[in-house]
Design a protein around this nucleic acid. Structure first.
Length: 213
DNA sequence: AAGTGTCC
DNA sequence: ACAC
């Protein structure tokens, strides 16, 4: 298997059955995606959510689409209303929808029409511990994850949390798609190393597309 | 429990 | 790495 550190832009690599890394798939679209993200943030700004255990998440989040992912003391859920504004989440920008659908199709998942995009901002030191995306209604639909800005180490494990996770270096423009047998795989991000990226500055932005409803 | 603390 |  080709070493993930040396994968060429445009390469498509299997991480496990049902999970694929599309190296650099979003590089050309990145400036458009980040510009459209600015309009999303003008409506629903970054915020740090709290876990059911009462801990503040190190990753700053917002959402766009008809449903947004939330965490608070009551648990995890999707909600059509941004609790910080009392208004619906901003619509999915066309650039977001198109990128998600084409990446999913490239990975073998035709007809992906996401209704939710969770947007994560990782500042230096921010991380996301190993977890499953299991708050969606239909696990037949894949997850599409777009990396922008600073590089990060993506952890990709198995259905069972105890399985050893693969460490996948992700750079600006990379897209990871997982579904089918990998849909409930555990995944996470190691603490972000500081650096500077011409398009995002000292942070990494991740767009995670789901069909939640 | 999408985090934190502790131990090797 | 693992317990909580």
């Amino acid at each position: 298997m080709r070493d993930l550190f040396e994968a060429e832009e445009g390469a498509q690599m299997s991480l496990q059955p049902g999970a694929v890394l599309l190296r650099g798939f979003a590089t050309v679209a990145a400036p458009q995606l980040l510009g459209d993200l600015g309009a999303v943030l003008a409506v629903s700004p970054w915020r740090h959510l709290v876990t059911p255990g009462g801990f503040r998440m190190s990753v700053a989040m917002t959402n766009c689409g008809t449903l947004g992912w939330l965490s608070d003391r009551r648990g995890y859920r999707y909600d059509p209303i941004d609790p910080d504004t009392g208004r619906p989440w901003p619509a999915l920008p066309a650039s977001f929808r198109e990128l998600a659908a084409t990446a999913a199709a490239q990975a073998g998942f035709q007809g992906f029409e996401p209704d939710a995009c969770l947007v994560n901002r990782y500042d230096p030191g921010a991380r996301l511990s190993l977890h499953q995306d299991r708050d969606e209604r239909d696990f037949r639909q894949p997850i599409v994850s777009v990396s922008l800005g600073l590089p990060a180490v993506f952890l990709f494990g198995g259905i069972e949390r105890a399985e050893k996770a693969l460490r996948v270096p992700l750079v600006h423009g990379d897209v990871v798609v997982w579904g089918g047998p990998a849909r409930l795989s555990h995944h996470g991000i190691l603490p972000l190393k500081d650096g500077e990226h011409p398009l995002t500055g000292h942070c990494r932005v991740n767009l995670t597309f789901r069909k939640a409803g």
